[in-house]
Structures are given as structure tokens and as C-alpha cells.
Design a protein around this nucleic acid. Structure first.
Length: 478
RNA sequence: UCCCUAGUAGCUCAGUUGGUUAGAGCGGCGGACUGUUAAUCCGUAGGUCGUAGGUUCAAGUCCUACCUGGGGAGCCA
């Protein structure tokens, strides 16, 4: 007989049917006459209550039904005699698919710390919290493709291995097949990369943007969605060495079009989550509430689902960098010298400044545009004022920068000049510059940190908890 | 990488100004009881106190280094 997923069983349409359910035991409550088994198969946050009459089963089998064990249960669905669930499965046959020694199985039917579960990342999928997170993560990945596909964007697979070190987005991981103990050397004693696999030094990508632009300049609109690698020694709850990034790149889009897309895109994802992940969101929301109930009322954050609806229903605030500096200079913390870092036109905004704008001043997602050119990348559109570039950062409460993007400089001369000023090797970038040489057009794009977005949707606080197996400095377990 | 902080039983933590045989709750195991809801009740086992040095008559407790986790900062998505 074919297995029925617990999600489908709980819909309640199969009352009185005989079904086969397979899954893992969450808890078991036993007594002399009857056992109650909470069975979960990952298809939903909810468990199926299995009722087993002790007299119908071998004692040795019942002893093996422990938290973590895998079971296949055949039985009849009935209306539940107890409260707490509508439907339950009266077991006729129980097959032990895989035992789990209760003395050794680390996941107990109790609340574990996120730190402990992080160290048991291979088993944390079996908890309510993490199964909810990763179902939502999947839904968001799917919604991203759905959104872009619906708008006629092409999913472009930009390379993971790149020989370009000019992206300027941080330290890179080397990729090499040379013998690290005994690499071939040139006459001058340098490592001879001409003998390496690609005949030159190569790295893992820090961004698919430059290649993405090449695609956009023919296909019109593209997006990438793939792994990204940064070898920065970043030890924060917002950084990973290996993370997933979504990078749309659009021909004929100016900065305003870019902002409109970013806002519509984020809102469409949130809407998809609200429409398709309500069970999991509700679980995470109540979990957050539990966690925060000890905090003083003014420090508690907004209910997760309220927060998502708020972002969905309100326009993002759009201001220029220059306006942001003005607001900060007129702010109470500035006047009371509460900011640790100076506020001056030309400096990059610090976390404390971004948080003030988003969490205190506007209490809303904010899009900051037109940053000083000195603090932004070479490829950004140079504005007519000669001082700023058409950059765009989307700032979210708690998370900070969730999107970084810009209109791109399409003028060959201006771009080359800027590259020389910033010591970017112009000759090596001939392929990038060819797009400006031949049929150059206004275009724009941005990068969305997938995990940072998942942090926001799930309400989690640490980025290591929204990726299955986190890669961070000194940690590549699993 | 910098600042702060923590590392004691499988998990979450307590351990007083350094002073005999290191405690609790949960989980495990044994039993009792019950259409139960992370059940309840009784009993029981379980710890080279992160690692390596040092101070001291005496170190879980003090000092140093290192490792790992957490909070904050920088870099950024």
C-alpha cells in the first residue's frame, strides 16, 4: 500500500480510510494499555497522533518506539477521542524501519538551545523550528524563480570558478590543483600558475554580477541564484563564507526602475510566504513570542506575521544618502553624542546609523540612493553632480543591508577612467568593457542575500540557523 | 580581526571570600499509573569541571596561553 503524507492525512478528507504513514517518532507516551506516538514526516509542522493498543503488539517492538525512530504504520484514521488533534491513526500494523537508541540520540523531546542544535546540524532538521525554517527556505527559493519567470527574466548560470579578481567584493577563496607542499615555481621564485589547472590563478566567485551584466546586454533581463563565496574573516550573525545570492541584472532599467523592481520583488516573496507557509510561520511566531516573554515590553519585537504584513502593505521609504546624513545630524542620538562613529558627508554609514534610520526614525524598510562615489564600487553610474553614484541599498529592520545594487555606468570612457582611479586592471576586464564598447545601454541590477532575507522572513537571529550547513571561519563541519 | 563574555552530567544551569565524598531540573534506565498531549508519580545510574601550563598546604573557583561558543564592532549580501 502506498504511503500517505501526514500533511495530506491531516487535511481530514480520509476519515475512516486505512492508510500507511511513515515518519519519525517525536514523542511517545506509554501506559499499560495504550501508547500515543507523535509521528512526523517533514511534510508539515504538525504531527500525526498514532494510537497503539499495547495488547496488539510485541513488547520488544514497543520498546524500540523511541524518539527519533523511524516507523511505518498501517491503520485506520478516526476522529480523535482526545482534544489537541482532530484526527488520529489507530495502528493495526507497526513496522520499525530504523531504531534510534535513546541513550545516544541527541535530540530530546525538550527545548534545545540553538547553539546545541547548530553543533548537531545533521539532526536539527528533525526539530519543529528547523523543519519550519527549511520548508520556508525552500518556498522562498521557489518563489524567487516563480517571480522572475513571471516577469520574463532568464535564469543565468554564471560561473562558480572565476579568474577575475576585480570584482572588489572582498577576499576570495583560491582554487588550485597545484601541490600545496611543492608548487612549481617560476625563475623568479613565484608560484607558476601557468602550470595550474586553468593556466592562471582562479578563485571562487564573490559575485555573478559582471557576468550577469553580459547576459542582460542581450537577453534583456536575467537573474542569477547561486552560491557565493567570501573569505572574509567575518564573525557575525549576518555573515557566511558560503552563501546564496540572487542577482538580477536588467537592460534599459535606470535607478528608479531598479528600486521599483527590488521593492516589488521583496514584497512578492513575503506575500508568497504568507500565502503558502502560514503553519510554519505561526510556529516560528509563537516560538519568538515565547523567547521574548521575559523581555521588558518596550524591547519586544513586533509579532513575526504582523511584521511581514507591515512590510507588504507599506511603501519603502526612499531617500538619498545626503538626506540621510541630514536626518542623522538632526537626530537626538547625534545631538546627545550617543553615536559611536562620526556622521559626516562622505563617510560610509555605520550599523548604528542604519539602524537608527530604519528602526527609530522611519520604522520601515528604507532604500538609500546616491552614495558618495568614493565609498562605492567602480561600476556604479556616475551622477551628474560629479560626487555621487547611482547606488541603492535596501535596509531592513534588524538585518541591515539586505540588498545592495546600482545603476551601472554604461559610458565606456567614464568607466575606464574610474577603473584606473581605483586601480582596477582595465586590460584584464576587456570582456566586461566590450558591453560598453558595442551597443551600450542604461542598465541596472542588485544583489539580494538569500540567507539575510530568510532571517527576516523566519524571524531568526543568526544566519547560521537559516542555511542547512553553515560555512564560517573555523567551521566546515558536515 | 578587535572589544566583552562563557565553557561543570546527554541537555539547560547552580556551585558562596580558593577549603573534605561537585548539585538541581529535564532527558535516559527501572517501576507505578493514566485517552495521553514536551503527561504525572516513585526510584536509579551518569561528571578526568574546554585544553595545556602556573600560583598555593589546597584550584570547578585565582593567573597565563590556546581552542570553541555567544553578544557587539569592522568587512559586506
Amino acid at each position: 500500500m502506498k504511503r500517505t503524507k501526514i500533511k495530506d492525512i491531516l487535511l481530514g478528507e480520509k476519515a475512516n480510510d486505512t492508510v500507511v504513514a511513515k515518519g519519525w517518532v517525536r514523542t511517545k507516551r506509554g501506559s499499560k494499555n495504550v501508547y500515543f506516538i507523535a509521528l512526523n514526516d517533514g511534510s508539515t509542522i504538525h504531527n500525526l497522533q498514532v494510537v497503539a493498543d499495547v495488547n496488539n503488539f510485541d513488547e520488544s517492538l514497543l520498546r524500540e518506539i523511541n524518539t527519533g525512530a523511524a516507523l511505518s504504520i498501517t491503520g485506520r484514521l478516526t476522529e480523535s477521542a482526545g482534544s489537541g488533534q482532530n484526527i488520529e491513526l489507530i495502528a493495526a500494523q507497526i513496522e520499525l524501519l530504523g531504531a534510534a537508541d535513546p541513550e545516544q540520540y541527541p535530540i530530546q523531546p525538550k527545548k534545545h538551545s540553538l547553539e546545541f542544535l547548530r553543533e548537531n546540524a545533521h539532526l536539527r532538521f528533525r526539530t519543529n523550528t528547523f523543519s519550519a525554517i527549511f520548508r520556508i527556505r525552500h518556498a522562498m527559493a521557489f518563489a524567487i524563480h516563480k517571480y522572475f519567470n513571471g516577469k520574463g527574466f532568464n535564469y543565468l548560470h554564471t560561473p562558480i570558478i572565476t579568474a577575475s579578481d576585480a570584482e572588489g567584493a572582498g577576499q576570495m577563496f583560491r582554487v588550485s590543483t597545484l601541490d600545496p607542499k611543492n608548487p612549481p615555481l617560476t625563475e623568479t621564485g613565484e608560484i607558476d600558475y601557468s602550470q595550474d589547472f586553468f593556466g592562471k590563478p582562479t578563485n571562487l566567485t564573490v559575485s555573478g554580477q559582471l557576468e550577469g551584466e553580459l547576459g542582460a546586454m542581450a537577453l534583456g533581463e536575467i537573474y542569477t541564484f547561486g552560491p557565493t563565496f567570501r573569505a572574509e574573516n567575518s564573525n557575525t550573525a549576518r555573515h557566511l563564507a558560503e552563501f546564496w545570492m540572487i542577482e538580477p541584472e536588467m537592460a534599459f532599467y535606470d535607478l528608479k526602475d531598479n528600486m521599483d523592481l527590488a521593492e516589488e520583488f521583496l514584497k512578492s516573496l513575503i506575500q508568497y510566504a504568507l500565502e503558502n507557509c502560514m503553519d510554519d510561520l505561526q510556529f516560528l511566531a509563537s516560538r519568538l513570542q515565547q523567547e521574548e516573554k521575559d523581555k521588558p515590553a518596550d524591547q519586544r519585537s513586533m509579532d513575526l506575521i504582523e511584521k511581514l504584513k507591515f512590510v507588504l502593505e507599506n511603501d519603502f521609504i526612499r531617500i538619498t544618502y545626503t538626506e540621510a546624513i541630514e536626518i542623522l545630524k538632526n537626530s537626538t542620538p547625534y545631538k546627545k553624542k550617543k553615536f559611536q562613529f562620526p556622521v559626516e558627508w562622505g563617510i560610509d554609514l555605520q550599523s548604528e546609523h542604519e539602524r537608527y534610520l530604519v528602526e527609530k526614525h522611519f520604522k520601515c524598510p528604507v532604500i538609500l540612493i546616491n552614495y558618495p562615489k568614493e565609498i562605492k564600487a567602480f561600476y556604479m553610474k556616475q551622477n551628474d553632480d560629479g560626487k555621487t553614484v547611482g547606488a541603492m541599498d535596501v535596509l531592513f529592520p534588524q538585518i541591515g543591508e539586505i540588498i545592495g545594487g546600482s545603476q551601472r555606468e554604461e559610458n565606456l570612457e567614464k568607466l575606464e577612467t574610474r577603473m584606473r582611479e581605483m586601480n582596477i586592471p582595465v586590460e584584464e576586464m576587456w570582456w566586461y568593457l566590450d558591453t560598453r564598447r558595442f551597443g551600450s545601454v542604461v542598465h541596472s541590477g542588485f544583489g539580494l542575500g538569500f540567507e539575510r532575507f530568510i532571517l527576516f522572513v523566519t524571524g531568526m537571529g543568526n544566519i547560521r540557523d537559516v542555511i542547512p550547513f553553515a560555512r564560517t571561519p573555523k567551521n566546515a563541519e558536515f
